[in-house]
C-alpha cells in the first residue's frame, strides 16, 4: 500500500515539471503550428543559464525564473520573427509549413546544442538546492521536488489565467481557433503567432530553471525533454493548459509505475506509450 502511495506521490511530483515542459510546446504547435523539436534545447539553455547564475553569482534559483524566463522569451521572439515567420511567408500550404518548420527546428536543434556544448563543454553539471528530505506521513522526498511541483502548477495556472482572461490572451486563442475571424476583428495574427512562440519559449525557460534545481545537466539533455513534452501534449490535447497539467500528472504516475517495475525500461516505455498514443489517440485523451 505504501509503495503504491509512494508511486502516486512521486508521480504527482514529477507531473508538475512534465506539465510545464509541455505547455510551451503545446502553445507553439497548437497555435503557431510549429512542432518545435528544439523545445528541449530551449529548456537546456535555460537550465544551464540558471546553473551559471547560481554557481557564479549565487543567485537563488527561484529568482532565476525572473531573469532566465525573459531571456528565453526574447530568444523565442527572435527565432520566430527571423526564421519561422520568413518560412511561413514562403510556404503558403499549411501542411508544407508544418513539415518544413519541423525540419527547420531540427536545424535549430543542432545549432543550439552545438553552441551550448562549445560554451559549456560535455561535462555533467549541477548544483544543490533544497536537497534535504521532507516527510509526508511515511513518504519521504526531497524538498526541492515539492517546490518545483508547486511552482510549476502556479505558473501553469497564471498562464491559463493570462490566456483566458486578458485581451491579449483572448486574441491568441482567437488566432488559433479562427484566424480569419480574428483578422477581421483587427487582431494582428502574425504578431500573435510570434508572441505565442515567444511565450512557448518563456515556458521552456521556466521549465529549464525548475529542472536545474533537481537534475544534473548536460547539453544533450534536450531531446528527451522534447519527447516528454510531445507525449504530454498529445496526452492532454493540443494547446490545452489544463490538458497539459492532467497529461503531466498521468505521465508522472506512469513513470512511477514503470520505474517501479523495470527501471531500465523507463525511456523505452515512454517511447512505446507515445507511439501507441499517436496511433490510437492522436487527438489527445481529452480531444474531440
Amino acid at each position: 500500500m505504501i509503495s503504491f502511495i509512494n508511486i502516486l506521490v512521486n508521480g504527482l511530483l514529477m507531473g508538475g515539471i512534465y506539465a510545464i515542459t509541455a505547455v510551451g510546446l503545446s502553445m507553439q504547435y497548437g497555435v503557431a503550428r510549429i512542432l518545435n523539436i528544439a523545445h528541449g534545447e530551449f529548456i537546456m539553455v535555460a537550465a544551464f543559464l540558471t546553473w551559471m547564475l547560481h554557481t557564479t553569482l549565487g543567485i537563488n534559483p527561484i529568482l532565476c525564473l525572473a531573469i532566465v524566463g525573459p531571456i528565453l522569451f526574447v530568444l523565442g521572439y527572435l527565432v520566430r520573427h527571423y526564421l519561422f515567420k520568413t518560412l511561413k511567408e514562403k510556404t503558403p500550404s499549411p501542411a508544407a509549413f508544418e513539415g518544413n518548420s519541423m525540419l527547420m527546428a531540427f536545424g535549430l536543434l543542432f545549432v543550439i546544442q552545438s553552441l551550448a556544448t562549445y560554451i559549456w563543454g560535455k561535462n555533467i553539471v549541477g548544483y544543490d538546492f533544497m536537497r534535504y528530505s521532507v516527510y509526508l506521513g511515511e513518504i519521504r522526498f526531497a524538498a526541492n521536488r515539492l517546490v518545483i511541483m508547486i511552482t510549476a502548477v502556479i505558473i501553469c495556472f497564471l498562464f491559463y489565467l493570462f490566456l483566458t482572461k486578458t485581451r491579449t490572451g483572448k486574441a491568441i486563442r482567437a488566432s488559433s481557433q479562427d484566424p480569419d475571424a480574428a483578422a477581421l476583428m483587427g487582431v494582428d495574427i502574425n504578431r500573435m503567432l510570434t508572441l505565442c512562440f515567444a511565450l512557448g519559449a518563456l515556458m521552456a525557460g521556466f521549465a529549464g530553471v525548475l529542472l536545474s534545481m533537481e537534475y544534473k545537466l548536460d547539453t544533450f539533455m534536450g531531446m528527451g525533454h522534447t519527447i516528454i513534452a510531445i507525449i504530454v501534449m498529445v496526452l492532454g490535447g493540443l494547446g490545452s493548459i489544463p490538458g497539459s497539467l492532467v497529461g503531466g500528472f498521468i505521465l508522472g504516475i506512469f513513470y512511477g509505475i514503470v520505474s517501479g517495475i523495470e527501471p531500465g525500461l523507463t525511456e523505452a516505455a515512454y517511447y512505446l506509450l507515445f507511439m501507441l498514443l499517436l496511433l490510437f489517440k492522436p487527438s489527445g485523451l481529452f480531444g474531440r
Binding site: L83, T86, L87, K90, T91, N100, L103, M104, F106, G107, L108, L109, F110, V111, Q113, S114, L115, T117, Y118
Partner: peptide, 21 residues
C-alpha cells in the same frame, strides 16, 4: 572542430529550407 561542423550543418539546413526549397 566538432562543434563547428554541427553548427554549420544546422545553419545550412535552416538556410536551405528558407532560401533553397
Amino acid at each position: 572542430f566538432p562543434y563547428a561542423y554541427m553548427i554549420i550543418f544546422g545553419a545550412v539546413m535552416i538556410l536551405t529550407i528558407l532560401y533553397l526549397p
